[in-house]
Design a protein around this nucleic acid. Structure first.
Lengths: 206, 206
DNA sequence: TACGAACTAGATTGATCGATCTACTAGTTA
DNA sequence: TAACTAGTAGATCGATCAATCTAGTTCGTA
């Protein structure tokens, strides 16, 4: 028997492993608090591979890490804000599950990229832009659903911004206070705002 | 003429200078991204002084830095939320002036301790607790004024949490997007919530 | 099969890191 | 004035840092 196709790889390629490890490290310890060596140890990858795949060095790894984390969270947001969903309930559920998640990680993990973003906002324009784009992509997901539900474009944007700011602020407070209640608190407030906006929209579709 | 009291010091003592420099450095570059040497250069202070005044080392400097930044911002919050102030207007003004401030620093500075707090939340319990206490002190300022205006204690707490989360989330978004509008957006939303809570409270005093 | 490109591997480099250390200065008190 | 304490000054230390480098392996193509 001749094996004509190679067996599936036992593990992801080094580049993927590096990014996954980088995200785990940087979300908790920040950009400057994460060393290249720690990433490589976690990724089981060599120094040469990192600089081969990311010739821009640590900053390039950081920017890709932000993009990767941003895409993952956008997909999470999309899982709550599905087409046709009750947006008030979706919002409530989103915050309640965020609270449960933060608790389940013993208040270590919350937003995958906020810690990095806050840290590099003043020092790396490459990474700042990656974070800006990631956040914007989340806002767009929510905004699109609000508009589809009949809320006017301006109000949809405002709601999305309010929701984003609420969750990010609550993550910070939950992580420092070791209490997930602030996330639930702002979740109720935002869900109420969403429901009010929907009621004011008077959706003409059934 | 005998001078019986010493002349006022030309500059603050080293300990003060170190903390002031530390706050400036850490608020922008984060804890791990700020080196001891950079603090000392900015403070015009020697290595020996730092470890003399802060035998716990960098972590102790970080914790004191958080406390110092926390007190300064609490005083700023108190300047807006004065006794007897119209709390809806105070809230609106607070956010609008926060937006103007962030703009005036070219989106470099926002909250003095959020960047540090997010970074060390998972790695230093000493500093996490300092941040927790700082944030709690801000919440208390707002909560006290809401209660004094007749809002029930539970709702006052919620409002304070909503306000805190809104401003912190908006700071993050403003710094990454280089746009202060999100601060104004959430300011309008929170001011509206405050006004609604006040209207619902039906303050019996004139 | 040979060659080139892509990728892996990990040692090495000069710089920076936080902390320790020795020595000195200044201020206070008996 | 001498002794002590508080504080300043900055060199030094071992460890870690990001990046470079050399060498080897793997893969794809002609």
């Amino acid at each position: 028997m001749i094996q004509t196709s190679p067996p599936p790889p036992k593990r992801p390629p080094a580049r993927e492993r590096i990014l996954a490890a980088s995200l785990e490290q940087m979300r908790r310890y920040g950009y400057a608090g994460t060393g290249i060596k720690a990433i490589l140890v976690a990724a089981a990858a060599p120094f040469g591979s990192l600089y081969h795949h990311f010739p821009g060095g640590k900053e390039e790894v950081g920017a890709e890490t932000i993009r990767r984390g941003g895409v993952a969270y956008r997909e999470l947001v999309e899982a709550f804000y599905v087409d046709g969903a009750d947006l008030g309930d979706a919002t409530q559920t989103f915050f309640d599950e965020a609270a449960a998640f933060v608790e389940s990680t013993a208040f270590v993990d919350a937003c995958p990229i906020a810690t990095i973003a806050g840290e590099i906002a003043a020092t790396s324009d490459t990474m700042r832009q990656a974070a800006d784009e990631a956040f914007e992509s989340w806002l767009r997901v929510m905004e699109r659903q609000f508009v589809a539900a009949g809320i006017d474009v301006g109000r949809a944007r405002e709601l999305s911004v309010e929701l984003f700011c609420a969750i990010e602020g609550a993550f910070l407070l939950a992580r420092t206070s070791h209490d997930a209640e602030p996330i639930r608190t702002v979740g109720r407030a935002v869900a109420r705002s969403v429901r009010e906006a929907l009621a004011g929209a008077r959706v003409p579709v059934g």
